[in-house]
């Protein structure tokens, strides 16, 4: 096999430019797991983006299915209820011809008190080679990765990270922004930042992309991010972001606005007086959106509470790319499953 690739030159020839030194052709993907965006350098994020382009092309084919992961067992282990993300991963894996096993926590032995580590060992013994995992406790996928022989792809952990969402958000922004780049673009993430894994992963990818990132929401839901905001530009390869409760200042001239879901249970802890008050002060309405650029890109990771964090007419506005996010979600997840599938053993 290897000889054929080397000899024919066609399928496996690396970078075409003869001028690129041999050292630059080192393996371009080294991660066995993807637990958060923070471990990806910019060239790796770009690789995910170009691989996603290829997956979009696959999705446009008459038969939107390729055999890349044929014979691979992708086990989807969700400890938290989710339809959208789980189905997105499932479609992505099936488009790559993987064998998909779904385990929902409610139906597994989790409720019988089995530990996560035992569950991981069990699904591996049952043939899982790639594990897509969602868990309510921050950091849980790191524990899984430490005990799993294959690849772990984080489908969301606690408040911590949702890397595939951040990457599909970045892809969607680049797709809709003039010039195809978020560098220098004002991107606003609006809502419950404190409890949001989407916001946290987006901070890593958007500051790496050079966006002018603003996090906006009530002060109770922004607590603690000011220090991260102050530190971020000092981290190599990352730009600054800022934190504000002034919605007007955040939306002024915005290129992208992403509203986050407000969960009802936040009121129990005294974080919000009421959803009505939240909608009145921070809801994304057409009137407020007028302060943004006319061609602003409106996003939402879903599921939406229409009338709370986003007005129904904004959600369905032509400037809304929320359904594009869903389509791109499948392509990004295909790209990541594909890239992770090639790394064994020593990969990180």
């Amino acid at each position: 096999m290897t000889l054929e690739i080397g000899a024919s030159g066609s399928p496996a020839s690396p970078v075409p430019e003869a001028a690129i030194p041999v050292s630059a052709q080192a393996p371009a993907w080294r991660h066995r797991h993807l637990l958060d965006v923070d471990v990806l350098d910019w060239s790796e994020i770009e690789l995910v983006m170009t691989t996603t382009d290829a997956m979009r092309e696959v999705l446009a084919r008459p038969i939107a299915k390729v055999p890349a992961l044929r014979g691979r067992n992708v086990t989807i282990l969700f400890y938290e209820a989710s339809t959208r993300t789980r189905v997105s991963f499932e479609v992505a894996a099936k488009n790559l011809s993987a064998d998909v096993v779904n385990i929902a926590a409610a139906t597994s032995s989790v409720t019988k008190g089995e530990s996560l580590v035992d569950t991981i060992r069990t699904v591996e013994a049952l043939g899982a080679q790639m594990l897509v995992m969602r868990h309510a406790v921050s950091g849980a996928p790191y524990l899984a990765a430490a005990h799993f022989g294959g690849s772990v792809l984080n489908g969301g952990d606690g408040w911590h990270a949702h890397p595939t969402q951040a990457l599909l958000d970045l892809y969607t922004m680049r797709e809709h922004l003039p010039g195809g780049s978020v560098a220098g673009r004002k991107v606003v993430i609006l809502g419950d930042i404190l409890h949001s894994r989407v916001a946290r992963s987006n901070i890593w990818s958007l500051t790496a992309a050079g966006a002018d990132l603003w996090l906006c929401g009530p002060s109770t839901l922004l607590r603690g991010f000011d220090r991260w905001a102050a530190a971020s530009p000092r981290i190599p390869g990352h730009g600054r972001f800022q934190v504000t409760s002034d919605l007007g200042a955040a939306l002024a001239g915005a290129d992208v606005v992403m509203a986050l879901r407000i969960q009802r249970e936040r009121m129990a802890g005294g974080l919000l007086p009421s959803l009505r008050e939240y909608a009145a002060r921070f809801g994304l309405t057409r009137e407020r959106l007028a302060a943004a650029r006319p061609d602003v890109v409106v996003m939402h990771p879903g599921p939406m509470n229409e009338g709370v964090e986003i007005a129904p007419d904004v959600a369905t506005d032509p400037r809304s790319v929320i359904t594009n996010q869903v389509t791109n979600g499948v392509a990004v997840r295909m790209a990541l499953l594909y890239l992770l599938a090639g790394v064994h053993g020593e990969g990180r």
Partner: peptide, 22 residues
């Protein structure tokens, strides 16, 4: 025609993951 997704050896992905497009 890019046949990357049709190759029968996944271990080659990491070495040359760039898809050139169909």
């Amino acid at each position: 025609l890019d046949i990357t997704f049709y190759r029968d050896d996944l271990s080659l992905i990491a070495q040359s993951p760039v898809v050139k497009g169909t």
